[in-house]
Design a binder for these strands. Structure first.
Lengths: 259, 259
DNA sequence: ACCGTTGTTCCACTTATTGGAACCGCCCAT
DNA sequence: ATGGGCGGTTCCAATAAGTGGAACAACGGT
C-alpha cells in the first residue's frame, strides 16, 4: 500500500455523517496500526488534505478539498445541459430535481434544482448512495452490461429497505426493465417517503453518463402526474442525446463575486 | 518532500481557470522531473484524487474531492449563524452577500446568498482571492497582529488593481483602520465594478474566524446606502459575538434527497 | 492522585520514491 | 512516406520514505 492510496482510504472514511475523525477511529476503520495513522493524519494535515478541529483531537477534510470540490465539472457541457433540463421539469411540476453521476457502485448528486412546493425533497449534492437502491443509480447501471454490474457488487447486496432489490437477480431484472422502458423509478428505498424518476443520458465514453432525476414526496403524487413527469424527463433526455453539441444554459448576474 | 505533500502541490495547481492539467504542465508548474509527475498523477488517479479526462491526456480533480468539498463545515455553528446573518442583510438591501474564511494569505468563499436586484454579483463560493486585496480578506487579516501579516506575505505584494494596497505599509495602514472602525471596504479591487463591505466574527481559536461580506455593483450604491449596509452588518456581527452559543438557522424541506 | 484511554515517539526493517536516460507513439511538416 | 519534435512512459540503482510493535507521554474523568 502506498501512502497515497492509504490517504485516499482515509478521506473515504469521511461522509455527511462522519465529518470529523480521530486517530483511533481511522485506525479501526482501516485496520491500521495507530502509529501509522497518527503520522499519516499529521502528514495529510501538513499537505492540506486535512485540518485539525479546534478544541478537539479530531481531523476533518481541509479547505483545499472544499475548493477543488466546487469547480468539479463546472464546465462540462453534458452536465450543464442536464442541469438545465432537470430545471425545466422541476419548474413544470414543482418537485425537486437533480443531476447525478455514478462512481463505482454508488451515485453522487452533482447539481440540484429545488422544488417550489411547500413539501419538497432537499439536496443530495455531494452525497453518496448505493446505486442499486436508487432510481438514479439504476438508470446509470442499466447502461452497463450485466457482467459489469456483477463485478461492481462482489459482496451480497445490502438493501436499505424492502423496496430495494434484495439480491443480484432482482437487480438485474429491474435493470432489464429500465433498458426496455428507458427510465427507472423508486419508492421508499434509500430515503423514506420519497419517490423518484430517473433517466440517464450518455457521454461519449461509457462511464461518463449523467442522470436526470426528479424526486417527490410520495404523499403528493398520483399515477397520472408520475406518468407526465416520466414523459417530460424522457423528452428532455431525447433532446440531449439527439443534439450532443447544443447550447449551454444561461448563467445570471456578474460572473464572480468580489470581496 | 513526501509523496503526500507533492500530491497536495499538484492539487493546488488546479483552479477555476485550470480545470485540467497534463503531465508536462504539472512538471513545469512544480519544477519536477516528468518521470515523477507521470507516476504521481497515475498514482493519484488510482487513489481517487484525480480522474482522467476522456478523449484527452489531461487529469482533473476526482469525484472524491467533490464529495468531500460539499460537507465542509456543514455543521459549523459559527458559519451557520454568519450565513443566516448575511442572508438577512442581503435580503434587506437586495445585494448579494457571502461568508468567507482565510487560508494563509488567501480568502475563500464558503456560502453565498444571491441578491434580488437585476444587476447582482455572482457567487464566489470555492474561489480563492488574495486576502490583502479584498474587503473580506482585510477584515480577517485585521484580526492578526501586524507581525503575522508580514509573515503571510514574504514576497512583495502583487496588487491586482490600483485600488488595492500597493505595498505592505499601505496594507498595514488599512488594517489599522479596519481595527479602529470594525469593518473593511473595497472598490474595484480584485473584481472590477464591484464594491464590498466586510465584517469579521471570531471563532474560539484565532484563525477560526469567519467573515460576513456584502457585495454590490458600484454603479448602484451611493454613500447613504453604503452606510446603512455597514451599520446592518456591524449589528449582525455584534449579535453573533455577544451570544456565541445561540440558535442555528432554519433549514427548509425534507433533509436529504432520495433517488 | 490514579487509571484508562488516546495519541505520539522510537528504532530496526522493509518498501517506496527519486531522477536521469532511454524508449515509445503520435502528430505535423517537409 | 519519413524524419523531427513533443508528450508521455519505463528502467534502474541510489536514496529516502513508510512500517509496526513497544515504550512513552498527555489528557479526562472519577
Amino acid at each position: 500500500m502506498t501512502t497515497l492510496s492509504t490517504a485516499g482510504q482515509v478521506l473515504r472514511c469521511f461522509s455527511a455523517r462522519r465529518q470529523e475523525l480521530t486517530v483511533t477511529e481511522v485506525a479501526e476503520l482501516l485496520s491500521l496500526p495507530k502509529s501509522n495513522v497518527s503520522r499519516l493524519l499529521r502528514a495529510m494535515r501538513e499537505a492540506g488534505f486535512l485540518e485539525s478541529v479546534p478544541d478537539s483531537r479530531g481531523y476533518r477534510p481541509g479547505i483545499l478539498m472544499f475548493e477543488l470540490g466546487h469547480s468539479y465539472r463546472r464546465d462540462s457541457a453534458l452536465v450543464a445541459r442536464a442541469h438545465a433540463a432537470v430545471g425545466r421539469v422541476s419548474r413544470q411540476f414543482g418537485h425537486s430535481g437533480y443531476v447525478s453521476l455514478r462512481d463505482g457502485g454508488d451515485v453522487i448528486g452533482l447539481t440540484f434544482h429545488e422544488g417550489s412546493r411547500m413539501l419538497r425533497v432537499g439536496t443530495p449534492v455531494g452525497q453518496r448512495l448505493p446505486a442499486f437502491a436508487a432510481a438514479s443509480g439504476r438508470s446509470l447501471l442499466a447502461r452497463l452490461p450485466d457482467e459489469e454490474v456483477r463485478r461492481l457488487y462482489p459482496a451480497p447486496l445490502a438493501p436499505p429497505s424492502p423496496n430495494a432489490p434484495q439480491d443480484m437477480a432482482e437487480l438485474l431484472a429491474r435493470l432489464d426493465a429500465v433498458r426496455r422502458e428507458g427510465f427507472a423509478t423508486a419508492c421508499d428505498e434509500s430515503n423514506p417517503g420519497v419517490g423518484s424518476i430517473a433517466v440517464a443520458v450518455g457521454g461519449r465514453q461509457p462511464g461518463e453518463d449523467a442522470c436526470l432525476c426528479i424526486v417527490y414526496p410520495l404523499s403528493l403524487v398520483d399515477g397520472t402526474e408520475r406518468e407526465r413527469m416520466v414523459a417530460a424527463l424522457l423528452a428532455e433526455a431525447r433532446e440531449i442525446q439527439a443534439r450532443p453539441g447544443a447550447v449551454a444554459p444561461e448563467r445570471a448576474g456578474l460572473r464572480s463575486a468580489a470581496a
